[in-house]
């Protein structure tokens, strides 16, 4: 049987890739298999969700060396009859994908946000032209490498009882050397995980408006995020709070957009929200046509009133 092989350095993303793989595996009659490299914990977690897990334990494989990791994956894919490899489209995954595609002579797409089988062809959707359009492309080659955007697919539910098989591949000695790893000082707020997002744009005239926005977000049990200029030009919030093409792609249940005009580069990061509410002084702002609810008003006066109104309810 031919297989889809999934791999990510990130366990959460690997669990999502299983879901992604299952959306196409049945139709093309492929099995779903997973690979872990030097990550026993990930192997255990995947074993609750996937039938076949190949586990590699080999400290010679340097995760920082995308070339080495790509080589390992290509060897496993070859041995285990997996012409389709799904990776996560995070930085590690994207770096591996181009190299892996070269090794397998396969067609490769990254930043894929959806897959379908159309007349036996595997079709992928991805944003292009800076997010202005969504392109649907078919990978025609037999071998395929697809990097899937994190958080597009839900985590695979537990259920399957998987078998972990240890395998070994010949690893190449890495020429690159990791000198130091420094964890990033994380913003305590993870806007991708938030169910409610209050997003401020350039319509917020001053940094002084931020505390009341934080209070509002607190009342809504949500997080505060922003458009790019608010973080990069004004530096009122950290860059981890940026929603959009060059920031995070979020899909909260509810997004309250305050003074956000709705440029394409921003919209890419929020258009998967279930409900969008916009407050903007400009009734012609592009965001207004993309909102479930829209209110023409100045956020500066709306937010304090809104905080009081919610407190009353």
């Amino acid at each position: 049987m031919r297989n889809i092989l999934i791999y990510s350095d990130n366990t959460d993303y690997a669990c999502e890739l299983l879901t992604a793989a299952h959306t196409i595996a049945g139709e093309i009659g492929y099995g779903v298999t997973a690979l872990t490299i030097n990550n026993d914990d990930q192997a255990e977690k995947l074993a609750l969700r996937c039938g076949t897990i190949y586990r590699i334990r080999d400290e010679a494989i340097l995760m920082a060396d995308a070339a080495a990791v790509a080589l390992v994956i290509s060897e496993v894919a070859k041995k285990k009859n997996a012409p389709v490899v799904l990776l996560s489209s995070n930085r590690r995954g994207k770096e591996i994908s181009g190299r892996l595609a070269h090794l397998t002579h396969g067609g490769c797409l990254t930043d894929v946000s959806g897959m379908t089988i159309d007349n036996g062809r595997l079709c992928c959707r991805r944003n292009t032209l800076g997010g202005a359009t969504v392109v649907t492309q078919a990978i025609e080659s037999d071998h395929k490498v697809i990097a899937v955007v994190p958080k597009v697919y839900d985590t695979m539910e537990e259920g399957e009882k998987g078998a972990i098989t240890d395998i070994a591949v010949e690893a190449e000695l890495s020429v690159i050397k990791v000198v130091e790893v420094m964890p990033k000082v994380k913003d305590s707020v993870d806007i991708e995980a938030a169910e409610v997002l209050v997003v401020v744009g350039q319509g917020m005239g001053s940094r002084d408006d931020l505390p009341i926005v934080e209070i509002l977000a607190g009342h809504l049990k949500g997080a505060v995020a922003c458009t790019k200029p608010v973080a990069t030009d004004k530096r009122w919030l950290s860059e981890e709070r940026i929603v959009g093409l060059s920031g995070r792609k979020c899909k909260p249940d509810l997004a309250l957009l305050l003074g956000v005009s709705g440029q394409v580069q921003f919209v890419v990061g929020i258009r998967d929200a279930k409900t969008i509410i916009s407050v903007n002084t400009d009734e012609n702002a592009p965001i207004m046509t993309m909102s479930d609810y829209r209110m023409v008003a100045d956020m500066k006066s709306v937010v304090p009133e809104l905080v009081r109104a919610i407190e009353r309810l």
């Binding site: 067609g107 969504v134 492309q137």
Partner: peptide, 18 residues
Amino acid sequence: NITTISNLAPVSRRKGIV
């Protein structure tokens, strides 16, 4: 290896309530 089938702006299906 890759063929493009379509390239379209996404349609927004929003309620549009004022």
